[in-house]
Amino acid sequence: MKNYSEYFETLENNPRDPSHWHALYLDHSIPFNRDAKAAFLYDANSKTRQFLNPVVRILARLAIHVMQVIKIVIPNLINAPKALHWSLYMGMKYFITPQANFLILRHFYLGSEVLRFIKDNVEGAEDIPMNPLKPVSVRAVKDNLFLEHDLNLYNFIINLNKALESRGLKVEKKDRPDFSAISTTPIPFENFRNGWTNFLDLGTAIEIFTPVYQFFLTDNDFWRATNSLQLDEVIGLYAATIMDCPEKLVALNNKHPMIPLPTAGAAFRLLLHGFSTEVLHALLVEAKLQQETSV
């Protein structure tokens, strides 16, 4: 992967025309992995994000509305998760930028580590089954990766709370959390294809993928998937309770999990979902390094 951090660190600032992305990269008020942050901002600064994304967003959301009307009448018209993930794999491999693929695969990897961290630090959660997703190449998408990610999140919350209720326990602060699930070294991803067709930025690609996701799934599956994007607050509260730092949740933006939002805005919420996972994992990495330093 290109060193996007170096791009921003060597960027000369023009006081009469400062870069929005340069300013955000240099700001450290929000915890974020340096390489992921650089990739995220480099991707957001692309021409497709600036000029193509507004047009794609309108067309994609119109397609979602049309499909929603159709699925009111025929909710189970298509149920083809394998075809969905083959389409996502082809799109990611041949049309998405390397930095966007880097961020997408990081999301699954980090999400699995965050859930494992919570399990390791909640008394009574020892027997909860886990299904860690740690892809290192785009090929892993073909194994229903996106769908499995959604199911993991729901099943974890359900299994965790059933286990706690049966034992009369709850999520509580730990004086010395177990950070063994949290990695602090770079994830060993395989090289991502970087051909002339790999031009779609992350935000534009997600706008395109959302109606594709809707098309290949039943209405119930798509509804469940979009609602899962509202669970960042729940997972964040578990981690913040363990670490006793609720004030750190300021950057977890997909709030109000009990209030379902329109599916047309799912693409934007998915970006926030990825952002929130990066911030929460970065907080855990910081805490782990501080704990190791104190020892």
Rank of each mutant, 00 (worst) to 15 (best):
F209W: 07
D219L: 10
A225D: 13
L252Q: 03
I206E: 00
D219T: 14
I187E: 14
F268M: 05
L229D: 00
A266Y: 05
F189Y: 11
T197E: 10
P257M: 07
F209Q: 05
A251W: 00
P257L: 11
L270T: 06
G195Q: 10
T218G: 09
I259F: 07
A239P: 00
A266H: 06
N227R: 08
R193T: 07
F189I: 11
I206G: 02
P211R: 00
C245N: 13
Q230W: 06
T263W: 07
I206V: 08
Q230Y: 12
S228E: 10
R193W: 01
F215D: 01
N194K: 11
T241N: 15
E247R: 08
T204S: 08
K255L: 14
C245E: 15
R224K: 15
C245L: 06
I208Y: 04
V250L: 06
D201W: 06
M243P: 03
N227S: 07
S228Q: 10
P188V: 15
P211L: 04
A267Q: 08
T263C: 07
N191Y: 05
P246D: 12
I206C: 02
F192S: 13
A267K: 04
F189P: 14
N227M: 11
E247T: 10
L217A: 04
R193F: 05
V250W: 04
T197G: 10
G236R: 00
G236I: 03
D219R: 13
G236D: 01
T226S: 12
F215I: 01
P262E: 00
N194M: 13
F216Y: 09
T241M: 14
I208V: 12
F222S: 01
L217T: 05
E190D: 14
I208H: 03
I259K: 14
L270M: 13
V234A: 09
C245P: 06
N220C: 10
N254D: 09
T197A: 06
I235Y: 04
P260H: 14
Q230G: 15
E233Q: 15
T210Y: 08
D201T: 04
A225T: 05
E190A: 11
D221A: 13
D219N: 11
V234L: 12
L202F: 07
P211S: 07
F216D: 01
L202P: 00
A225H: 02
A264G: 08
Y238W: 01
A225K: 05
L202I: 03
F189S: 15
I242K: 05
